[in-house]
Amino acid sequence: MEKFTTHTGLVVPLDIANVDTDQIIPKQFLQKTERVGFGVHLFHDSRYLDHSGKEPNPEFILNKPEYKTASILLARENFGCGSSREHAPWALEEYGFKVIIAPSFADIFYGNCINIGLLPIILSEDEIEQLFNQADNANLTLTVNLANNTVSYGDVSFTFELGKFQKYCLEEGVDSVGWTLNKLDKIKAFEANMPAWQ
């Protein structure tokens, strides 16, 4: 996993609540055994007019030329609800997003993002509203500083919360499996005390 320190990028505002993982990456694109090839199908049903994904929908915000280089997704409440498919954060990451900002995320999706180094940031409804107002004409560039837990533009700066260990893993690009395998003695001791039926 790549290390995350700071990121500055253009914000694309997706003004829809309850965006579920079926919308982020529909099921027909989950039939892969590799970890790549999902970005092109991100938001497929909204992004393309046809089934095969050849005709971009000009009305969909990601297809507007001024947002082409966006790397920060600004979203509404309960983003990433539904299925546990990690293919959803994979698709967002492969498309080019580094950060997703929303007032709330679904739990599994939030954890999946952290696990692949895509930073989910929760801000208050008021702060989100302010960002939506700013991002309207593709003129909002934000800087995210993980060390300080801040999101800023111009003189404005918002603070976000992130679990200590999650922050450490993102900053250091920790191999979380390897980290846990270093605790094998503790795991074995736990197993030795489990009841027989378990």
């Binding site: 546990s84 498919r85 599994i108 979380s176 499996v177 395998l181």
Partner: peptide, 13 residues
């Protein structure tokens, strides 16, 4: 439910 990174974590640990 868990994501694929967590599936790997459970496999290994």
């Amino acid at each position: 439910g868990i994501g694929t990174s967590e599936v790997e974590h459970v496999f290994a640990t």
